[in-house]
Design a protein around this nucleic acid. Structure first.
Length: 675
DNA sequence: TTGCGATCCATTTTT
DNA sequence: TGGATCGCAA
């Protein structure tokens, strides 16, 4: 491998031979390229690939890194290079070291399973803290946030329910509710132990806590690795930091990240892991990469400006290697329909005029539902697109229904699956289901369960006939799904009567996916840790030219020639909710926008709705505002030299008619005159 | 206890 | 647009 295609700063990082290094890599500066080169460099210098561990946040990116390393290195040992997510790495550690971690035969439960357990425990209680209703979902969020940030329930409630407030009233409110929450969480934990469940947080926690408390174990495990390479360091949370610290003594850490792209604080990520790296990590250095290979200087100027208007010191100044190009354009509209129509028309025009393929167009949205109108427009014009973000197919209710059936076949003690499965059928609600599950858990085989069910006063015999039939197909998950559907179709069609036709199609995809597996249990455990089937579907099938629609959060790593960042309106950037949350939340919103802007290679369009702008009439669009007034809109104070403002006919009219130049009316009386 | 229809309400999301 | 949630009737 040659290191020729690295710039001097990248090269310096790749060849680093101190202990720990943080590479602060701005957007488009070759972050992934650097981490890949580092791995290849180490291997080519005689490091055994099994002593290198690459860590990232998604399976997809872990896989991609390993694959790209194998492409640039000729070393035959390369296949043994490990790239995993934090979670799958920890899971492997737990499994392969049963004498260290006392967890064997555990079942991993996902978010929805966790919610189900909270439902089970919480029953029909109705409590709320402040104005926030305690639902199983919010309970889970409180619990999980506390664990990921390695803090306590009090702080978690403070953050999630009181938006960080720290006054005495808040403290008292929290204190009042604390015993109840502790009770719930204790029950939840006991339930997990009883049933040998590990939730996602447990997987990390077991390793992080285990190793940090036990030096012998720590030394033993960490001696197996020499180099740990971490991607997207800014997304690590305190729990993951603690995990990494266990390897700090015996291994070299090489972490790559960009604090300006930290947008996952809501799930516990702490960008101070990057910001305060040097203070926190002994024997460490920081290198910076600022040469941007993706965008033109105009796009970077605007992005840099956005960061520089912040109180925080990001110290980012991206320079475009590609030089100068087109100035970013801000398009103003009066409603989201015009916005959608214009974008789609623009894309069609580009394709006709310049042959720019659909896939070089990236439409970025803050929220998944925020691009509803775009989707509608694309659909009506029959233009192919792919959507990143939002909920995946595996999370949808009807899929989970069928999977619950498979889960029972796989493990008759899976009470979560039982609860879901039973409640599908008529006349069975949570109370009846609980009763039946209690009984089922006494049985030892599936046959016993089915016989037990036959004695229950059940209306629809398909309830047990489904299970009976599927039990034959333990080693053919695809067939199991098909048969499941045969028996369950009527009830599912009834339960989802308003859109069953649409949902029905998903099962074709599901069984297609299941075909890759030779047993139900393999299929199930695979999908829980890797519910990314969108990828596999699009990969396998049509490689057509498609417009890319994505939430900004799912757009990390994406780029395109032409980029539309939609609905950059007041109340959206920063988001209203984040304004209530205060400074830190607003800063995160700024970074979200920053991530969006830096996706564009050649052309950047920012669209916004001018009506929401007038709703907040004290904010000017172009000129610098008086002090304090531009707090709540990132683009206020933006000068014309950084971006060009374009108004269509309608917005022009509104703009003109809304500027009143006459005298102010002093009359305050409205209504009839009283005499 | 269940099920239905009405009503309300919308960040971001990986493992 | 769709989902979660609520209240009420059976």
């Amino acid at each position: 491998m040659s290191l020729d295609n690295l710039n001097p700063n990248q090269k310096k990082a790749v060849e680093y031979n101190g202990k720990h290094l943080l590479v602060l890599a701005g957007a488009g500066t070759g972050k992934t390229h650097t981490i890949i080169s580092r791995a290849a460099y180490l291997i080519n210098n005689g490091i055994d690939p099994t002593q290198i561990q690459i860590l990232s946040f998604t399976k997809k990116s872990a896989k991609e890194i390993v694959w790209r390393v194998s492409n640039i290195s000729t070393n035959s040992q390369i296949k043994r290079l490990n790239g995993s997510t934090f979670h799958s790495w920890c899971m492997d550690l737990i499994k392969s070291n049963p004498n260290i971690f006392s967890h064997s035969d555990f079942t991993i439960i996902d978010r929805d399973d966790q919610i189900s357990i909270f439902k089970l425990i919480y029953g029909r209680s109705k409590q709320s803290i402040d104005t926030v209703k305690l639902t199983p979902k919010i309970l889970l969020e409180i619990y999980s946030f506390a664990r990921n940030t390695r803090s306590n329930i009090t702080e978690s409630i403070r953050k999630l329910i009181f938006l960080g407030k720290k006054d005495e009233d808040t403290n008292n409110e929290i204190k009042k509710h604390l015993p109840f929450l502790i009770e719930i969480f204790t029950k939840y934990q006991n339930r997990k132990i009883e049933r040998k469940y590990l939730d996602y947080d447990d997987i990390l926690d077991v390793v992080a806590t285990g190793l940090s408390k036990n030096k012998e174990a720590r030394d033993y495990i960490s001696s197996k690795y020499k180099y740990i390479l971490v991607d997207e360091m800014q997304d690590t949370n305190p729990l993951q930091w603690e995990l990494l610290m266990c390897f700090q003594e015996n291994c070299n850490l090489f972490c790559v990240g960009d604090d300006a792209q930290s947008i996952y604080a809501f799930r516990g990520a702490d960008f101070r892991n990057v910001h305060l790296w040097k203070e926190r990590m002994p024997n460490s250095e920081v290198f910076k990469l600022e040469d941007n290979y993706r965008s033109t200087q105009e796009i970077l100027d605007l992005s840099n400006w956005l960061l520089n208007t912040s109180e925080l010191q990001y110290n980012k100044n991206l320079k475009a290697i590609r030089g100068s190009g087109k100035i970013p354009i801000i398009m103003n509209f009066t409603n989201p329909y015009d916005e959608a129509e214009w974008i789609v028309k623009d894309i069609i025009d580009n394709r006709l005029k310049d042959n720019t393929p659909y896939k070089e167009h990236l439409i970025l949205t803050r929220s998944a539902f925020g691009c509803r109108n775009i989707e509608a427009e694309l659909l009506s014009k029959k233009i192919p697109y792919i959507f990143f973000g939002g909920t995946s197919l595996f999370k949808s209710a009807h899929i989970r229904d069928v999977l619950s059936c498979l889960r029972i076949i796989d493990n008759i003690y899976d009470e979560i699956a039982w609860m879901r499965y039973l409640q599908l059928w008529d006349n069975i609600g949570d109370i009846t289901a609980t009763k039946i599950v209690d009984e089922m858990l006494n049985y030892r085989t599936l046959e016993e369960c089915i016989n037990g069910l036959k004695n229950e006063p059940i209306k629809n015999n398909n309830l047990y006939l489904t299970l009976e039939n599927i039990s034959e197909f333990k080693h053919d998950p695809a067939q199991a799904i098909t048969n499941c559907l045969k028996y369950m179709e009527d009830i599912l069609a009834k339960n989802y009567k308003n859109n069953w036709d649409k949902r029905k199609n998903d099962f074709t995809v599901l069984s297609l996916l299941a075909k890759k597996h030779t047993s139900i249990s393999e299929f199930i455990s695979e999908y829980i840790l890797n519910p990314q089937l969108e990828e596999s579907i699009t990969e396998g099938g049509d490689n057509e030219d498609k417009i890319i629609l994505s939430t900004i959060h799912s757009a990390k790593g994406l780029e395109a020639k032409i980029c539309y960042v939609i609905n950059v309106s007041i109340g959206v950037f920063p988001n209203k909710v984040s304004i209530l949350g205060g400074k830190d939340d607003i800063e995160e919103e700024r970074r979200v926008l920053y991530v969006a802007l830096t996706r564009a290679k050649d052309e950047l369009y920012i669209t916004r709705n001018i009506n929401t702008i007038f709703d907040n009439s004290n904010i000017n669009l172009n000129e610098n505002n008086e002090e304090g007034k531009d707090d709540y809109y990132f683009l206020s104070g933006l000068k014309d030299n950084l971006a060009e403002n374009v108004y269509d006919e309608k917005t022009k009219n509104i703009l003109e008619s809304s500027t009143y130049r006459g005298e102010k009316i002093n009359e305050n009386i409205i209504g009839i005159e009283m005499s």
